[in-house]
Design a protein around this nucleic acid. Structure first.
Lengths: 140, 140
DNA sequence: TACTACTTAAGAATAATTCTATTATAGAAC
DNA sequence: GTTCTATAATAGAATTATTCTTAAGTAGTA
């Protein structure tokens, strides 16, 4: 907590109670919340918080490279407070999203027709599957 | 064209002039159009066409596995009339999307902590980079 | 040629996100 | 501690993408 305050103050990021609540909620959070998830959570402690504040904070954190936008779910955007490059897996049953901390870059050679057109700067892999709970449900 | 008609009639897909125009526009199209791109194009020949028709047709084609939704662009959905599994690369300068026809599945082993939680059914890779035109522009 | 189920079109509805204008406040300066 | 200023928060309007509703039209079968 002290660590968070020092870190963000140090980067000239003005800390308000709302922002602190968002930062605290995101710290170490691997649930890949949507903007609405964040809003709902913060609202518990700050009932007057507005969606704009959530989106503003998300954007400010994104600009500073502190959180990443996750696009694996076509329905809505999720956010990931882990800025280290990694991949995701989504359960097609319940929508749960997990992290995949493997760098596959060395295996991802592109064919010549592509390298002739594009210079690659990054990659992100979306895996799809079923989580244990949904697999059991489906099997029954 | 005759081929298209026969194919879709054969699968019980009712063909209207609007739908034919959409199918014709999508046939062999590798530009990854958005719903609006399709709408704009069809409107040239059918000025009274509505967005609902475009979306209805997209959805009907999706249900039949004839087109895929491409989520590489966080701003909006694009569509790909090539249902064969493949990957995409997007230019972060101009947003142009290219196809990558390589199956990397064999290289994409997941770590145990993930396989213990999820059974994988598929994967999709988004590559990011700069297309030639944008690279030159940026260099200057 | 007629019938029926499906499709179209227009616009309203919804949902996610962004913008605007006003008020409030964090943190720096004194 | 008080004041000041730039930045943030709020409410709600605006925007954008997409879906839904309803009435009218039509493709394809019989």
């Amino acid at each position: 907590m002290e660590r968070i305050v020092r870190k963000y103050r140090g980067m000239g990021f003005k800390l308000t109670p709302q922002r602190l609540a968002i930062l605290k909620f995101l710290e170490g959070n691997t649930s890949h919340p949507t903007a609405e998830d964040i809003y709902t959570e913060i609202k518990k402690r700050y009932p007057t918080v507005s969606f704009a504040t959530v989106y503003n904070t998300i954007q400010a954190l994104r600009e500073r490279g502190e959180i990443m936008e996750v696009t694996i779910d076509p329905e809505r955007k999720h956010f990931d407070p882990n800025p280290a490059p990694h991949h995701h897996i989504m359960c097609t049953g319940c929508g749960r999203i997990g992290d995949v901390f493997v760098d596959y870059s060395a295996s991802l050679k592109l064919p010549d027709d592509v390298t002739m057109e594009f210079t690659t700067t990054g990659n992100h892999i979306d895996f799809y599957g079923l989580c244990n709970r949904c697999r059991i449900k489906t099997t029954n």
